[in-house]
């Protein structure tokens, strides 16, 4: 029983909360609203999976939101200027990957703690995003071949759901079933032991940070496709949410470790919570307060790797 609560306690609490909204919040359970919650979960979960992969190698990637915003405006600029959508998507992903690599090199070669290195990258990405856009958003009638990435459906399943499933399967398969994943986990769990066991820990760290950037890039492309626009701070709101999703996820399934099912489930719970609060008429600032409490509470509860990563400075 104790073990059950340890593994699933917060997951059950989250589920109970969602059920409470079903009963209490007007319209919460309508198919349209639920679908919206799930779609919104996709953006959050993919971004959070990246943060979780970085945390798997015991590094904090605080640049995810700004990297995503820069990726979005890069893609937006190309779409706006009538470039091939495929090229625009690749450019957006490339920006994410590139800045992830910058983070990886800063941490492993320049030996700047990730807490600082990724803050620096965030500032740079933010600056570049405002430079590209001159502070305004790209908005337009964008080709459906691009917007369809998010708004379309394949075989009746919304594409956003497919992206979520795909990203989840990729992250889970990588961490649980591949050699690279095992070495990333070992690096995050005990870096010196991993090094002594012959693991190229610096490379594992770069892989984790590159994947984090890539997830930010993918999130950005999907966000831009969903709203047919790109603004220089468009992913900003997802930052605390993504961190909260990973940390809350660390309280369930595999307590104390960033884990894929926990991250995705927590992302859903957080989005349902935000949505439910709005439907119940809570003021917008209640969400921020709630996120803060969840972040602190989760780490206090079990997120020991985070403490390690944050105190490496």
């Amino acid at each position: 029983m104790k073990r059950l609560i340890e593994l699933y306690g917060t997951a059950i609490a989250g589920l109970a909360m969602v059920l409470a909204f079903v009963v209490l919040a007007p319209n919460f359970a309508s198919p349209g609203n639920l679908l919206n919650v799930v779609k919104d979960t996709s953006f959050l979960a993919i971004l959070a999976l990246g943060f979780g992969l970085a945390l798997t190698i015991a590094e904090l990637d605080l640049s995810i939101a700004e990297v995503a915003s820069l990726s979005a405006v890069t893609t937006g600029a190309l779409i706006q200027n009538k470039f091939d959508p495929n090229l625009a998507v690749l450019a957006g992903l490339g920006v994410g990957l590139g800045l992830g690599l910058v983070n990886g090199v800063s941490v492993t070669v320049l030996r700047v703690p990730s807490l600082i290195a990724t803050l620096g990258t965030a500032a740079i990405a933010r600056g570049l995003a405002f430079m590209e856009t001159q502070g305004v958003a790209f908005v337009g009638r964008w080709p459906t071949s691009f917007t369809g990435l998010s708004r379309g459906a394949t075989l009746g399943v919304p594409n956003l759901v497919l992206w979520l499933v795909g990203a989840t399967a990729f992250a889970y398969g990588l961490v649980k079933w591949t050699r690279t994943g095992a070495r990333m986990v070992a690096t995050g769990e005990a870096e010196e032991a991993a090094r002594l066991a012959g693991i190229a820990t610096a490379r594992m760290k770069r892989i984790g940070l590159v994947l984090s950037g890539l997830c930010a890039g993918l999130t950005a492309v999907l966000l831009a496709a969903n709203v047919s626009s790109a603004a220089p701070n468009m992913a900003g709101d997802y930052f605390l949410y993504a961190i909260a999703a990973v940390l809350l996820g660390m309280t369930m399934f595999e307590p104390g470790r960033p884990n894929v099912p926990g991250t995705v489930f927590a992302a859903f719970v957080l989005k349902a919570l935000g949505n439910g609060l709005v439907l119940m008429g809570a003021a917008y600032y209640v969400q921020d307060i709630m996120l803060g409490l969840i972040i602190i509470g989760s780490v206090a509860f079990s997120a020991s790797v985070v403490k390690q990563a944050a105190f490496k400075v």
Partner: peptide
């Protein structure tokens, strides 16, 4: 030089995992 939270098998094979290679992925 062990990783306390990883399993016995994961520690024994750390850095020298037994895998099956399919394409370029070591499962």
């Amino acid at each position: 030089a062990l990783a306390p939270r990883l399993s016995v098998a994961e520690n024994v094979f750390m850095g020298a995992e037994l895998t099956r290679r399919v394409g370029f992925v070591h499962w």
